[in-house]
């Protein structure tokens, strides 16, 4: 059974002048137990809004979210946060500088359960050991840790309520490559040991290719392509996916290397998205009909694609 199911999710922000920014626009996906779903796309495509909506930090406009078969509306926030937790991008900005390591880690426990201080300290040292920190560091403050260690603290905090699902929002983007590898290895180890499921948001395609089982490519709030990793990365269908792979200088396939360049480098304004297919203004292989017809999400070559071609 899937641990997380999202159906036709929409998160809209009203702005001045009666306009609406459709940050997340009709997304559907499922996350299976012990699996990782990668989410990629340019800044402003709605990746982080999706994460916030799943964490109930933003209210959804429409659609439904199921946590292990139970609809989000029927769950209290306390229940929800014992099911799903989040690790943030910047390890220093997301840790309270006035709190000690053990307090940071067990904050969710103090809010959501009736644990005593003693239990919290015990839990904190267990978790620090689990994520590869020395237990004598539990009385230290965030500034006394290095970047990689801080991200380990953030991971320990996300695990304190034994969630089933973790949202990882660019968890390694702020780290150096050698430290990035340490954290990716840790995430893989934890997933195996604790049967966790991850939603892994990143702009780094080689990292997503490495860690995820399925990947969802987003463009202006909508899905471009969604499927298993070997399909998305080895035989991409959507011109946008091909563009991303080409720009990242990682694919050795000739089809990707020789794929034509983008027509327009700039992302259109989400306030005034283009007609038809949102990508047609930049798409190097667009046809006339792309500017008129909104492409439906269809199954093509064993993956979901929204493209007329």
């Amino acid at each position: 059974m899937s641990v997380l199911k999202v159906e036709n999710l929409k998160t809209f922000y009203p702005v001045k002048g009666g306009k609406v920014v459709k940050a997340v626009n009709n997304l559907s996906f499922t996350l299976e137990e012990n699996q990782t779903l990668g989410i990629v796309g340019e800044s402003g495509c709605g990746k982080s809004t999706l994460a916030k909506t799943l964490m109930a930090l933003e209210e959804k406009t429409a659609g439904s979210i199921f946590f292990g078969g139970k609809e989000s509306a029927q769950m209290s926030l306390k229940e929800r946060y014992q099911y799903i937790q989040m690790v943030f991008q910047d390890p220093l900005d997301s840790l309270n500088p006035r709190k000690k390591a053990w307090e940071i880690i067990t904050d969710p426990m103090m809010i959501n359960t009736n644990a005593s201080k003693k239990e919290c300290i015990k839990k904190a040292s267990e978790l620090m050991e689990l994520v590869g920190l020395r237990t004598e560091q539990i009385y230290k403050y965030p500034h006394m840790f290095s970047g990689g260690q801080r991200q380990r603290l953030g991971i320990a905090r996300s695990l304190v309520l034994n969630p089933k699902v973790l949202i990882l929002d660019e968890p390694v983007s702020a780290l150096d490559v050698s430290i990035q590898a340490q954290i990716l290895n840790l995430l893989k180890k934890l997933q195996k040991e604790m049967k966790l499921s991850y939603i892994f948001i990143s702009h780094d395609l080689s990292v997503v290719n490495y860690i995820a089982d399925k990947t969802l490519v987003m463009y202006l709030g909508k899905v471009s392509e969604y499927g298993h990793n070997d399909q998305i990365f080895n035989s991409p269908y959507h011109p946008y996916t091909k563009t991303l792979l080409k720009s990242a200088h990682i694919s050795s396939s000739n089809e990707i290397k020789e794929f034509p360049k983008l027509i327009d480098t700039e992302l259109p304004s989400p306030l005034n998205p283009p007609s038809g297919c949102f990508f047609h203004t930049r798409c190097p292989v667009a046809k006339d009909e792309c500017s008129k017809i909104i492409p439906p999400v269809e199954i093509k070559r064993e993956r979901e694609v929204s493209c007329l071609l």
């Binding site: 590898a181 290895n185 893989k188 860690i211």
Partner: peptide, 23 residues
């Protein structure tokens, strides 16, 4: 060598990444 090995390579190899210990 450590730096190069710690980048996830773009192929189907999903084994543990090499990581440089320490800081």
């Amino acid at each position: 060598k450590g730096l190069l090995d710690s980048i996830p390579s773009f192929n189907d190899d999903k084994s543990e990444l090499f990581s440089i210990p320490g800081i």
